[in-house]
Simulated scan of single mutants.
Amino acid sequence: MNKYKKKLGIALTAVLTATTISTAYVTTGSSAAPSEDVNVIKNDEPTADRIDQLKDIAMHFYWHGGDVQKAEKEIFKGITLKGKFDVVENAFKEAATIDPLDNNLKISLASTQVIQKKIPAALQTYKQILNIDPDHFDANLLYGTYSKVNGDEKSYKTSLAKMMQIDPERTKEYIQKFEKTEDIMDTTFNTEIPEGIPQKDHAIIILGYALAEDGTMKETLIERLNAGLKIAKKYPNSKIIVSGGVPKQGITEADAMSEWLIEQGIEKERIILESKSTDTVENGLFSTNILEKEGLKDVTLVTSASHMRRALTVFSEASDLQDKINGKNTERDFTNMVYLDYPSIEEAQEVTKDERMVIYRDLLRTSGIWQYPEMQR
């Protein structure tokens, strides 16, 4: 994220503003658009520069949004843009037109289509990669995974067969990941404090939720904290990891959560802040690293019911990755407690197609398949 924030003053000024403009996006983290007129990508720039400019536009809008109408009028003329991800998608489409053999650009385009739930369009984009490079493992994996999500088991199995030809061991690993993920989707949610939690080397991990612009916590995060507080009181030997790093008014989610727990009587020494993550995947990767450093084995995850299956998938994969890196087998046990953000527990237990898509997307991201290769996990 910081890389693209820092580049705004250079790349976006060059791309989005007139050559004599002295101001661009005024403050880091702002989604305000330039106050001056914008120009299209210049055709008298080297190929790599034009592609880089489009990638910078895409990553800026991915993170911060911007003036979509201005982008529609000045950069992507003749294309109707409905939101920031339309800008991201069309920036990668344009870049892939400039260099049609750059598969990373096509993967980035397909990822943006997945985010917008345009699964058939994403599958077609992956297919274009495979038409050029049939042995591209990641493209086969992505095509197969989203075919599965889309209900096309035949294409999924065909992709697996091709992957087995390319890299049998890696393919077997992904089959195991998919099987574990399907099991996680059958997880029963706990709305009350789970019983039998280990008294030693156990962590309660409370996952963050975006703060309001003034740095205060929203209801969802407070409800997650209330659930975590109940467990913390019943199991006083458990450490508490608060995970969330997106700052508002200089306050991260982890900062706000820690302060709240201390105000409720939890000892400061029990609380460990994970204040760098920007999404669920990073919650999992960074918190698991803390577990390893602190010698903590088993985990109770606390989050909203609508988020729990994805969180469990990510944390399970992150734990396996940590074990692989360290050459060990932790056999970490995950339990859960949810804030019920559904009308009923029966409705919460149902897995929709959209949720399945996001779960598999984040599984792949956690496993090392970046959404935007070399730019954004």
Rank of each mutant, 00 (worst) to 15 (best):
P34K: 00
R310E: 06
E192K: 10
T181V: 14
K239L: 07
P343A: 09
T13F: 10
M257Q: 08
S108H: 07
M308C: 05
K7H: 09
L285P: 01
L130N: 02
S316P: 00
L109M: 11
Q113E: 15
A18C: 06
A311F: 03
W63G: 09
K180D: 09
A71F: 12
Q165I: 12
K218Q: 14
D102G: 03
A24R: 04
S111I: 01
I166G: 08
L221K: 09
S111Q: 09
T278W: 06
G151T: 08
L321P: 04
A311E: 00
N226F: 02
F334L: 05
E294T: 01
K55E: 13
A14Q: 13
Q69R: 10
D99F: 03
L363I: 05
S316V: 04
K177R: 14
E355K: 11
M59K: 02
I369K: 06
I184C: 03
K180R: 12
P194D: 06
V338L: 01
K82P: 03
I369H: 12
L81R: 07
F334N: 01
E192H: 07
I57C: 05
K162Q: 14
G29R: 10
K77I: 13
L101I: 12
F334W: 03
L364W: 04
E350Q: 15
V87R: 03
G65W: 02
V338P: 01
L101T: 15
E374K: 14
D44M: 09
P373K: 01
S155T: 12
